[in-house]
Amino acid sequence: MRVSVAGAGLGGLCLAQGLRQAGIEAEVYERDPAITARFQGYRLVLNPAGFAALQGCLPPRWHPLLDAIVGDAYGERLVLDPRLNKIGELGPGRTGTVVDRHVLRHLLLTGLTVHTGAALTGYDVLDDGRVEARFADRDPAVADLLVGADGIGSRVRATLSPRTTPIDTGVRFVIGRTPLTEQFAGLSRAFGSKIAGDGVSLLLGAMRFRTPPKQAAEELAPEVTLPDVRDYVRWAMILPPAGSAGPSPQEAVLSKMDGWHPDLRALVEQSDPDNSTLLSIRVVEPGERWAPGPVTLLGDAIHATSPTGGNGANTALRDADLLRRCLADGRQDLLGAVGDYERQMFEYGAEAVRHSLDALPAFVPQRESV
């Protein structure tokens, strides 16, 4: 069996690693001109199911390395004012494992065949049941299965399920990262909490590695090369719909922080401007089912969630692990395996989107009345 994976995000790479362990040939096609063309290095929290799915797709010899390069999720889940005084609570905290997306992506890339500059334009199902993926600037690729792991703007989904389209929630946010120095270690009470300002909300999360990733790879898995990333604070400011204007995302955030605690302002001021990005919160809800065939979808391509749900990466990793198990099972043919995967994925994927939307209002800022 040969599988083409469109998209070199976490879900697509995790699937390719899992198929590789199962002896199934998999090649990844990524539209970006290079793996490092875009910065993709923000902190994620994996729940126990997501972490187990990731482990299931990785070779066991890398499990000690994975354990070394993660951290522990913690936080009081408070609501604080801009001077860091407690004014409420968000509810029970989430347990899990903290990972850095940039580091994890480099681990998942190890040993895979990844074609960059491969912008998929469409596909055709051939008479023999195989599928031919077409690209803008390279020859087509023929495989037994095409997996669209190509994100919220999926070209695969546009053909497979054209009525399933992204929904814009209208919420915007700026995300960035700042080295975790002694000054910002004092903000630990705010990690995992919401800081509620006038019309904005600021969310902080600490990424503390158990072992620096580059060092861990050199000691535990020399065949793996990981970036030299150090502990940092991931911050995200949720803005009102009309509040995103500004010369730069970083300056737009600072313009909303007059009178805030000086350490909070310093956190944004000392962040890397190149890694501060304005994003919109869009979701994709799984809708119509298509007949099982040699094309399927994974991750944000079929069930993009709001980041406030904390389940986007977890659900994509769960997809990858489930699909690799269905394909490697051997007790059913390809279409049966794909159909079994899709039946389960549609159910929990739709629930993940609903959960993320239910969680969104608690983080959307409310402007104080004047």
Rank of each mutant, 00 (worst) to 15 (best):
V370N: 09
S4Y: 01
D32F: 05
G148F: 01
L264V: 13
T211H: 06
E182Y: 02
E27F: 09
L146S: 05
R289L: 08
Y42W: 13
E76D: 15
L278W: 06
G336M: 03
G309Q: 02
T305Q: 08
P294Y: 01
L334W: 01
R325Q: 10
T181F: 04
R210V: 08
G23K: 09
L44W: 11
L357E: 07
T169F: 01
L357K: 12
R43F: 06
K194M: 14
G330C: 07
I175V: 15
H63D: 05
F191T: 03
G56K: 06
G7K: 00
D81I: 06
I238W: 10
L226D: 10
V147A: 01
A242S: 14
M207S: 10
V229Q: 12
L327F: 10
D150F: 05
E285W: 12
V45S: 08
Q215L: 14
S369K: 12
D258K: 14
S369T: 15
A216T: 12
V99T: 04
G243I: 07
T308S: 10
I87L: 09
G176K: 04
T308H: 13
A190D: 01
R157Y: 05
V233M: 05
P212V: 10
I24V: 14
G309P: 07
G293Y: 04
E132H: 13
Q366N: 10
E269C: 05
P273W: 10
A328F: 06
A22R: 11
V28K: 03
P292V: 05
D358Y: 13
V131L: 07
D150P: 00
R155V: 07
S188F: 09
S255Q: 15
K194C: 08
P140T: 04
S193H: 02
